Amino acid sequence: MLSATGPARSWRLLDREIPLDGPAIAGVLNVTPDSFSDGGCFVDPGSAIARAWEIVEEGAAVLDIGAESTRPGADSISPREEWARLEPVLGGLRDLPIPISVDTSKLAVAERALDAGAAAINDVTALRRDPGLAALAARTGAGLVLMHMRGTPRTMQRDTRYGDVVYDVRAALVAARRAALEAGCAPRQVAVDPGLGFGKSVEGNLELLARLDEIAAIGAPVWIGASRKSFLGALLDVRPRDRVAGSVAACLAAARGGADVLRVHDVRETREALTVEAAVAARKVPGPSRARAAGGQG
């Protein structure tokens, strides 16, 4: 097992550093017709580019673009189709002031995306589909996110049983991170994501959030993608678009557990909640309460 050497203070993407002194926000942009939350909203490149700039204005530190749906039951598409969706959007975002992460597990797509200006690869298979992504990240210096998923999007919810979901997910992420480091990646390049909603039950997702400190103990930057996920729908009995409050609550719980990057659809709402949370935390006084220290009622 890799042991932690203390919390990572930044995440490196090419020549950029994302500071991790507080949770950073990765804004989600799906350029797909069939994503579970906003499928079809940004298929048009012009709409996608406009939304990307809104995500910047709302306070995201990273833009995470996905051109292939990974919702439960989704079929894979060809690299050619995925790139056809990505190319015009990336081409229109050359001047974006924040780095772009491309959500892909295909080496050919990742190579083209980095050539077109992307700075990171978000691999939902944690190198299981194409281990060559690690060598690509090592060669280019791109950031690499390794996410845990059992099976494929089409099959991942068929078996959500684990002996200990946190232990099993942590072990898989440690192994994937080790493979990336052995391929030549620097530790600060490689982030890990426990993959909420990807081959987990409602209870499993909650357990991962409750014990996120065990994932953070790996010593890598921790990504969390709870935004609008189905486990929130199961808890709240609401549609994806109505899961904003639940998503924000999950993000706050993740931040308290050690999450470094929060991947969200609702950037402004998440940023405002984190701002309030940080302001309250800054007022806390260590040790005995002020009332007790002043001799007030116990």
Rank of each mutant, 00 (worst) to 15 (best):
T140V: 08
G117C: 10
L127G: 02
A108F: 00
R129G: 00
A113T: 01
M149V: 12
L127T: 02
T152Y: 02
D115V: 11
G132V: 04
D130G: 05
A119P: 00
R150C: 07
V124H: 08
D115S: 14
R112H: 11
V145Y: 00
P131K: 07
A108T: 14
L146K: 02
V145K: 00
I121Y: 02
L107I: 07
A126W: 04
L144C: 11
G132A: 08
A110F: 12
A142I: 05
R150K: 15
T152D: 09
A138S: 14
T125N: 07
T152A: 03
L136Y: 05
H148M: 08
N122F: 08
A108V: 01
L114T: 10
V109K: 08
A137Y: 00
I121Q: 03
A142K: 04
A126S: 13
M147Q: 14
A134R: 11
H148I: 07
N122H: 05
T152Q: 04
A113F: 06
T140S: 15
A113G: 09
G132E: 04
D123N: 08
T140Y: 09
A142E: 08
G143H: 11
V145M: 07
R112M: 09
T152V: 13
M149W: 10
A135E: 15
V124W: 06
A120G: 03
A138F: 12
L107D: 02
D130W: 05
V124A: 01
E111G: 01
A116P: 07
M149Y: 05
L127K: 02
I121G: 04
V124C: 07
H148P: 12
L107W: 03
N122S: 11
G117S: 12
I121S: 03
G132M: 07
L144G: 06
A142N: 12
H148V: 05
N122W: 03
L133C: 13
M149T: 11
A118D: 03
A118I: 01
A137M: 07
G117I: 06
V145W: 02
A118Y: 03
T140K: 06
D123W: 01
A142H: 06
L127S: 06
G141I: 13
R129K: 08
L133M: 10
G143A: 13
A142R: 06
L127P: 01
R139F: 01
A120V: 00
L133W: 03
A120I: 01
E111H: 02
A110K: 03
A119K: 09
A138G: 12
A134K: 12
D115K: 15
D130C: 10
A118E: 10
M149K: 08
A142F: 01
L146S: 05
D123T: 05
E111V: 11
R128M: 03
G132S: 09
V109Q: 02
L146R: 04
L107F: 08
A108N: 00
T140I: 08
G141M: 14
A108M: 00
A113N: 08
L133D: 10
D130Y: 05
R128P: 00
E111I: 01
A138C: 13
L146A: 04
G141V: 14
L146G: 03
I121C: 05
M147N: 06
T125F: 02
A138P: 11
V124T: 11
I121E: 02
R129T: 14
